[in-house]
């Protein structure tokens, strides 16, 4: 689901820096999977994730969890919950020009089937539902990796 909203440029973060998730797009998804497979089971258990259906272009994956458990990789998009609307995650440093609750309502009106919490990626205009986020299982990650080999 895509939606263009003006005025959502990234700026250096002023104030508390919250990192609640990481998104990867296109080729970065494979690198995200590879990086996750380096985690031990205890670390993986702290994370949940969702991925776009097979064949979606560009492919998107989102991983959620405590900041210190999140993987780092080049070109990852770091996500933070809006302080006034925790059910909406935006790339860190993006300050919406309207209250979070209003933005969430607008997104839901535009994509009624996308159940909150939602991620909005302004660069690609993706709206991703996190309602189906599931624990990350090593076996599933491995299968997804193999499917890309």
């Amino acid at each position: 689901m895509k939606l263009a909203i003006p005025g959502l440029q990234r700026r250096p973060v002023v104030g508390e820096l919250r990192i609640d998730g990481v998104a990867a797009l296109g080729p970065a998804v494979r690198r995200l999977l590879a990086r996750l497979l380096l985690d031990d089971d205890e670390e993986l258990a702290r994370l949940t994730g969702v991925a776009s259906p097979k064949g979606a272009l560009p492919e998107v994956a989102v991983v959620l969890g405590p900041t210190d458990a999140l993987p780092w990789l080049e070109e990852a998009i770091h996500l933070g919950r809006l302080p006034d609307e925790p059910a909406l995650l935006l790339p860190t440093g993006v300050c919406p020009p309207l209250p979070g609750a209003v933005l969430l309502r607008a997104l839901r009106a535009h994509a009624p089937r996308a159940r909150p919490p939602l991620v909005l990626l302004p660069s690609t205009q993706h709206v991703i539902s996190l309602a189906e986020a599931r624990p990350l299982l090593r076996e599933h990650l491995r299968k997804r990796m193999e499917a890309r080999a």
Binding site: P12, L70, W72, H78
Partner: peptide
């Protein structure tokens, strides 16, 4: 990785 993450999350490349 933690430092890299905070750096990437806190500063977009063009404003770093």
């Amino acid at each position: 990785e933690g430092v890299a993450r905070e750096l990437d999350a806190g500063f977009p490349p063009e404003d770093r």
